[in-house]
């Protein structure tokens, strides 16, 4: 396989905080340790982990909002911890690895949709015609072209999040990290955002890393990575990861509902064969089982 777009070697990060009520003592809070992870171009990865597991820290390390305290991160072959790593390189990494956050309100800068989408390209110092072109294209990708002149605060949560995504697309990144971008949305908005994620991955060839709480979303990804207490503990296809449901339970996670149901039935002694992740698959597996059970 070709060189990964993101490669982490023994990556670790420790937050240092002043301890309360003392002047000198500092507390070190390890958030992530010894993470080895390679992400290849065009992959669709989900990152799972309960709150405080370190998954958001990982995201922030990948586009250098945080600087690793241990180990190395290579973005497109470039070592970000290298001492020759310049400020221009830093902004190049941030352009390549875009990030969409949880709260859409706190990501939008401008009072008009198209100006917000233009914010990234403006920062890159692109010529005006190019910015215009990218804004139009990005709004088309997220199907928000009719809202170019609207005020963002009048849009729904899902629409705002689509604008935030357009703002990232306009910078033409190689990778987009969605840091719990669906957590604050209603089911409809969530479905919209997931659809766009998958469209970006399939049609635009953008590598998608979806950090999420929703197992149903994770089950759709090609590859699932599970982080627990700052350590990467599972890394494999969705089928592989969700096959060990007891392990997931031990670390406070669940499998998608269908898989959970089948797991519970198996525990009670029903010999159900086959893997099933999505709702449709579970329904089929159960129907097949019922057929065989009757006869």
């Amino acid at each position: 396989m070709s060189e990964p777009i993101i490669r982490c070697e023994h990556l670790g990060f420790t937050y240092t905080e002043d301890e309360e009520n003392t002047d000198t003592a500092r507390v070190e809070i390890p958030a992530l340790s010894d993470v080895n992870l390679s992400v290849y171009r065009g992959e669709y990865i989900a990152v799972l982990g309960h709150n405080g597991s370190g998954k958001s820290t990982l995201a922030k390390l990948l586009n250098l909002i945080l600087v690793p305290t241990e180990g190395k991160v290579y973005i497109d072959g470039k070592d970000v911890t290298d001492e020759n790593f310049s400020e221009d390189d830093l902004f190049d990494v941030r352009r390549k690895v875009g990030m969409v956050f949880q709260n859409p309100d706190n990501q939008l800068v401008a009072t008009v949709v198209e100006e917000d989408v233009a914010f990234g390209p403006e920062n890159l110092g692109l010529p005006r015609e190019e910015i215009r072109r990218r804004v139009t294209d990005a709004l088309n990708v997220v199907s928000m072209q009719n809202y170019a002149n609207h005020a963002p605060h009048k849009l729904s949560g899902g629409q705002k999040q689509r604008i935030a995504i357009a703002g990232i697309i306009a910078m033409k990144p190689d990778v987009i990290i969605f840091d719990e971008s669906t957590a604050m949305l209603d089911p409809l908005g969530r479905a919209e955002v997931v659809r766009i994620m998958e469209k970006l991955n399939r049609e635009e060839g953008i590598t998608v890393i979806n950090i999420t709480h929703y197992m149903e979303e994770a089950a759709r990804a090609d590859r699932v990575v599970v982080i627990n207490d700052g350590k990467l503990i599972l890394d494999g296809s969705a089928k592989e990861v969700f096959s060990d449901i007891s392990l997931l339970h031990r670390i406070g996670l669940e499998a998608p509902q269908g898989a959970e149901l089948i797991h519970a039935l198996r525990k009670d002694g029903f010999g159900i064969a086959g893997d099933s992740l999505t709702e449709e698959e579970s329904v089929e597996t159960l129907l097949a089982f019922l057929e065989s059970y009757k006869s």
């Binding site: 922030k60 586009n63 909002i65 400020e87 902004f91 941030r94 352009r95 875009g98 990030m99 956050f101 709260n103 309100d105 706190n106 990501q107 800068v109 198209e114 100006e115 233009a118 914010f119 990234g120 390209p121 403006e122 920062n123 890159l124 110092g125 692109l126 010529p127 005006r128 910015i131 215009r132 804004v135 935030a164 703002g167 990232i168 910078m171």
Partner: peptide, 26 residues
């Protein structure tokens, strides 16, 4: 909290003050 999140989001979108910055609408 919003201010902090916005600042992070702006950094993610390569904001670096007016250094090398162009404008959509001049």
């Amino acid at each position: 909290k919003r201010a902090e999140e916005l600042a992070t989001a702006m950094e993610c979108r390569c904001y670096r003050g007016d250094k090398n910055r162009t404008k959509l609408k001049a």
